[in-house]
Amino acid sequence: MAQHKVNYTQDGGLPVALTSIDKIVNWGRSNSLWALTYGLACCGIEMMASGASRFDFDRFGTIFRASPRQADVMIVAGTLTKKHAEFIKRLYDQMTEPRWVISMGSCANTGGMFNTYATVQGCDRIIPVDLYLPGCAPRPETLQYGVMLLQKKIRANHASKAQKAKRLM
C-alpha cells in the first residue's frame, strides 16, 4: 500500500490558512474593486485604455461595471459639468457601502483648465473623494498606481467595525 504522506505543517501543505476576519474581508474588498464606468471626457479614454489589452486592469481584480449597484469604486474620469453634477450625486447614492471615489484628472480634481461658467470646480464639491490623481490626462499607469494606493487604504481600515459613511457635510 502506497504511503501517502502529507506534511501538514510544512509550507504549502496545509490547506488552511489562519488570519483575522478583518484581514480576510479587507483582502477580498481590496482585490475585487469593481469600478463604475464613469468616463465623462478625455480621461475616460485613458480609463478605457487601462482596461484594455496593454495595461490589463483585470489583474488587479478591477472589472468595469456599468451599474452603480454592482460597483465599489467610482472613477470620476473627466470634466464634471454643472449640467451633469446632479447625476454624479444620484449615482453615488446608488452605490452600496462601502464605496470609494477616485477623482481622475485635473478636471475632476479642481476643474482643471476649464475655469469657466460650465464646469464644477472639483467633484469634491458634490461627493466625498478618497484619492486624487493629477494629470491631464493621467496615464493608465497612474490610474493603476492609484488603485493600488486605494487598496492599501482599504487594508488599513477595520472591516469588522461598521464603517462610518463618508460625508461631505
Binding site: K82, A85, Y117, L168, M169
Partner: peptide, 30 residues
Amino acid sequence: PLQGDEFAAWYEVDKIYGKEARDIIGPEIR
C-alpha cells in the same frame, strides 16, 4: 463673464443640496 455669474457659481450646490448648504460647501476656488 467667463467664470459665470452668481447664479452659475452656486448652480450645482443649490440644485443638489439647497441654498443652506452654501456656507458648508463654500465658494468655488477660481
